[in-house]
Design a protein around this nucleic acid. Sequence first.
DNA 1: CAGAATCCAGCCGGATACTG
DNA 2: CAGTATCCGGCTGGATTCTG
Lengths: 128, 128
Amino acid sequence: MEEGHPQETCLRISQLLSRVGDKWVILVIRALQPEAKRFNALKREIGDISQKMLSATLRNLERDGFVRRTVTPVTPPMVEYALTDLGRELLCPVQALADWTASNADRIEAARAAYDSRGEDGAAATAA
Amino acid sequence: MEEGHPQETCLRISQLLSRVGDKWVILVIRALQPEAKRFNALKREIGDISQKMLSATLRNLERDGFVRRTVTPVTPPMVEYALTDLGRELLCPVQALADWTASNADRIEAARAAYDSRGEDGAAATAA
DNA sequence: CAGAATCCAGCCGGATACTG
DNA sequence: CAGTATCCGGCTGGATTCTG
């Protein structure tokens, strides 16, 4: 790891993290992990997602090279989405972060509860 | 890892990823990594950040237990921010993701370039 | 110095309607 | 089936102003 342009590197990392945290990507790549899926199958499986967000998410993931879109020109048209090698590789560090989150969710929640109770407590005694 | 509530787990992960991708957190925790810093020192070091965003980012990080805020009641008041143990632990999987990003940034950019050229090419030949 | 409050522009994400 | 187009509310994030 060279340290020539740390700011730029931070920017890239931040951007990728924003993408990965984009609210639907985790669900989408999780749904694509076992096997390729079609658009509406994906939509049904995820459930709450609107088709606008699903197509936007898939387009972003495809653009970044994490998902491959395959069109079979039959009628009605069939489109399949699958993770690429890059997408599967991305999953490793993301999975590590996911595992860490799952392991420490209670610590985070405890910190939040402590923070919130501190806030409501000594300070705003005049209000409410 | 139990698989009892995968959706909830995904939600937590996604939320944490959103926080971590929050545009300034990487810069902030990076600045705090070597040592505790004061508010304006942090602001100067990061540079582009507005004080609103810096205080909001710090507040979120403090609430989640990643940063500890220490007030020394002198005049003028001195406030120091430092990473907690939890914050330093979080850095490990984040660093892994950062390393992956740095290692694969060129592959992502190549995918984007390919995608963009595909888009401009065969399709919208009528326009422009 | 360390923030809180306010105002405001722009983007995100959802609902709906329409197309090939 | 697999999308695109449009409208619209809400949140994000920045600039400015004010406070202790």
